[in-house]
Simulated assay, not measured.
Amino acid sequence: MAIGLLADTAHAAYCAGRPEIAIVKMRDALSALPGIDPAHCHRVVRHGLLWLYREITGTKAGGQEEVIYSPGCASNTEPLEAIREHPVVALDVAFYLLADADEALAAPTGFYRDFRD
């Protein structure tokens, strides 16, 4: 649940007008995923990433026309059916999407440079 809460924090930060904090929190959530079994948490965090990517870049990713992310979505133990059916992007791809989103910010955090290096 702690990893899901990081993704929820990223959502809240973006909605509060702090996209740079959203990038950092999503990076932290993605970085924590390899330490747990691939299951529900992997799916909801990557779903949150697709939402954040679309919000920042205006570009869809992951084959979904619309990615809905409601408050508390990633820490909810009973996700929406749409999330359970959503394809899970590879973790490497998720980091590339996050780097692209960071690069699209007016004031990037620099994550994209560190990641690409």
Rank of each mutant, 00 (worst) to 15 (best):
M1E: 14
M1P: 12
I3V: 14
L6W: 03
L6S: 07
A7P: 04
D8T: 05
H11M: 11
H11R: 15
H11E: 14
A12N: 12
C15S: 13
G17W: 07
R18A: 14
P19L: 07
I21S: 15
A22L: 10
I23Q: 08
I23T: 09
I23S: 06
I23G: 07
V24E: 14
M26V: 02
R27G: 03
L30D: 02
S31F: 01
A32L: 09
P34N: 11
D37H: 13
D37Q: 14
A39V: 00
H40G: 00
H40R: 15
R43A: 11
V45F: 00
V45L: 08
L49G: 08
L50T: 02
W51T: 03
W51I: 02
Y53F: 15
R54T: 13
I56M: 01
T57Y: 03
G58D: 04
G58K: 05
G58P: 09
G58Y: 02
T59S: 10
A61D: 02
A61S: 11
A61M: 03
G62P: 10
G63D: 08
E66F: 12
V67M: 09
I68Q: 10
P71Y: 09
T77N: 10
P79T: 11
P79D: 08
E81W: 11
E81N: 09
A82N: 10
R84K: 13
A90Q: 12
V93T: 14
A94M: 04
A94I: 03
F95T: 06
F95R: 06
Y96V: 10
L97I: 00
L98T: 00
L98G: 06
A99M: 01
D100E: 15
D102C: 05
A106P: 00
A107W: 07
T109N: 01
G110C: 01
G110S: 00
G110A: 04
G110D: 01
Y112S: 11
R113Q: 10
D114A: 13
R116T: 09
